[in-house]
Amino acid sequence: MDQAGAQASDIRPGGLIAALPEAARPYAVLIRLDRPIGTWLLFLPGLWGIALAGAPWPDPWLVVLFAVGAVVMRGAGCVINDLWDRDIDRRVARTAARPLASGAVTPLRALVFLAALLAVGLLILLQLHPLAIALGVVSLLPIAVYPLMKRVTWWPQAFLGVTFNWGVPMGYAAAAGTLDAAALVLYAAAFFWTLGYDTIYAHQDREDDALIGVHSTARLFGERTRPFLAACYAATLALVAVSGLLAGLSLVFLAGLVLPALLLARQVMTLDIHDAALCGRLFRANREVGLAIAAAIVLGRVA
């Protein structure tokens, strides 16, 4: 695939990317600006942590900071991932059009762009409580090493779970100024949620990954993915419930967990690992799951 073809294949007519100046388009594609599900899945754990921290309603200013931070840091994570994976991405049909893999953006320019994103992220981070700032600094290590995990372990999804849900303790610390058992249990719940949904995501590339030797829980479990997914999602719901009880949420919170439980059960029941398009839809459906859990936490506080 040539550079022009690679760029064009990732830009939908009339979409957000197409509306940007031509010079900006490869960078917008690089940070997946037209694929917001990753930003949602990075933001939602932070929203859970803020909501759980104690006030009847989540602090709007913190919510805004974490939302903007999710856009910026998800973009930074994508740049880091694509710098590590550009040679692999060229060999996978779904990722061959990515700007670094196609040559639309050079590694040097990507590094400059990454520095700019991290600078914006630092400005946002400095608005938070000192404990949240410290947690944000620590998060840079798993962000940097996560892209390597698919080369050395069958469990890169577990490392993504550790990395992607850092917003839970950060959000809780930003709102409460401390960490306690409720926050840590909620972080564990988010870990299992990511372990499940990213396994679904990885099934989109399972065959290409096998050809080039990339590991994933999708390849590890294969036809046994459904019971693995059910176990992950059951652990998610159980740990969210325990976290809410530790935080003193009302019983309305437990009633509110019925909706995300139904949404997660639907993913388990309808999963077909041989249907890549369906796997993509089920993966994206986790935005609604995360919003439903956030709503249950807020209801448990307000009630």
Rank of each mutant, 00 (worst) to 15 (best):
P156G: 10
A144S: 12
L52E: 02
L62T: 13
L122D: 12
A303V: 13
A173P: 00
Y201K: 03
V162S: 05
G177Y: 02
E288H: 14
E207A: 11
T225A: 07
Y172F: 00
A235G: 08
T95H: 01
I88P: 10
V92E: 03
T194N: 04
L160P: 07
R226C: 11
D209S: 08
A247S: 05
L251S: 14
D10N: 15
L239H: 02
V72S: 05
V112I: 14
Q3W: 15
R301V: 05
S9L: 14
R74L: 06
H215L: 14
K150A: 05
F164K: 01
F164I: 03
G213T: 07
A230S: 11
A255Y: 09
R301Y: 09
L237T: 01
F164L: 07
M1G: 14
P60Y: 01
F159L: 13
Q157S: 09
S102D: 03
D275N: 03
V162C: 04
L20S: 11
I212W: 12
A255W: 08
T95S: 11
A173I: 00
A183G: 04
A218G: 09
V298G: 00
L148A: 13
A104S: 02
L111D: 13
L291F: 11
I200R: 10
A132E: 06
A115P: 05
L291D: 08
R219N: 14
R94T: 02
E22G: 15
Y27Q: 04
L299R: 05
P156A: 04
V152K: 07
G75V: 09
G15D: 04
F221E: 04
V242G: 04
I273V: 15
L42M: 08
L126A: 12
G280A: 02
D59A: 08
W84S: 06
A134Q: 15
Y146R: 04
G167P: 06
L264I: 07
T163H: 02
V302C: 07
H203V: 03
V63G: 05
I88Y: 04
R281S: 14
L254R: 00
D89Y: 06
T236V: 08
A93D: 07
G171S: 02
G121M: 12
C232I: 04
G167C: 06
V185D: 02
V105N: 00
W193P: 01
P169R: 02
W193I: 03
L262M: 09
L186Q: 00
A174F: 03
G167R: 00
Y27W: 00
V71H: 14
A218D: 07
D10A: 15
T39W: 00
G5L: 14
L264W: 06
L47R: 01
L160D: 08
P36Y: 04
V29H: 10
L246A: 01
G213S: 08
I80E: 01
G38L: 04
